[in-house]
């Protein structure tokens, strides 16, 4: 990488190299926390914070890390950041922390985080690494929010917990689509997002 191109670093994870739809990483939490918008957004922010800061920290440390224990060092950094996020959520957003339950802890095992550390932070300067972390977290977050939007709207007829589908529609015989609340539907929705993205972007189509 001769010349760091900041706009590419930032744009790629959002579209061409999206962690969920292209790299298909971090699917587990994407299925689990997308029943409602609010936890999805908090999860997206938490993952973004963790990827951004772990990228930054690892990038700052990259020349000192003994290569034999680099995975361990990465894990320690990621795990501590996740514990920090969890502690802060417990103190200030207790109900959300309960809703996200184990999935906050599972950010540690989210492949996006480790993937970016190995692939990017270890070989790049702190500023691009920070950007890369933010962008990958955001790329993950966008998909989470899209899926959560559809699932909450069709599954419980609400957005952010507020009813948006008018009662009149229910009176006409409309009913919430219960299957939307189940994890398989999230997988199908992610599949649909991938399909739409691939059909729009020529670069992603395999010959």
């Amino acid at each position: 990488m001769a010349q760091t191109n900041y706009s590419d670093i930032f744009k790629n994870p959002l579209s061409l190299n999206n962690p969920i739809t292209v790299q298909v990483l971090g699917i587990c939490s994407a299925l689990a926390v997308t029943v409602e918008l609010q936890p999805a957004i908090v999860m997206a922010i938490s993952v973004t914070v963790v990827t951004a800061f772990s990228n930054l920290i690892i990038s700052l440390m990259r020349n000192t890390i003994p290569s034999r224990i680099r995975i361990i060092v990465q894990l320690v950094v990621v795990a501590s950041l996740v514990i920090l996020v969890d502690q802060i959520l417990k103190a200030f957003m207790y109900n959300l922390d309960k809703a996200l339950s184990v999935y906050i802890g599972l950010i540690i095992t989210n492949c996006i985080v480790m993937g970016r550390l190995e692939a990017f932070a270890l070989g790049n300067k702190p500023v691009p690494a920070l950007l890369d972390g933010i962008a990958n977290g955001a790329g993950y977050g966008i998909i989470l929010v899209i899926v959560a939007f559809v699932r909450e709207l069709l599954g419980s007829g609400s957005l952010f917990g507020f009813k948006v589908i008018p009662q009149a529609l229910y009176d006409l015989g409309y009913s919430n689509c219960g299957i939307m609340l189940n994890p398989p539907m999230a997988l199908i929705l992610i599949g649909i997002v991938i399909w739409i993205q691939r059909s729009k972007m020529k670069e992603l189509q395999e010959k």
Binding site: N63, T64, I65, S67, I69, L84
Partner: peptide
């Protein structure tokens, strides 16, 4: 950065720092 001493000292310091922060 690949010597044994360095690796051990490095991980020891890292763990102490992380423990204090947490």
């Amino acid at each position: 950065t690949n010597s044994n001493v360095y690796t051990v000292v490095y991980s020891a310091i890292m763990v102490v720092v992380v423990a204090i922060v947490l």
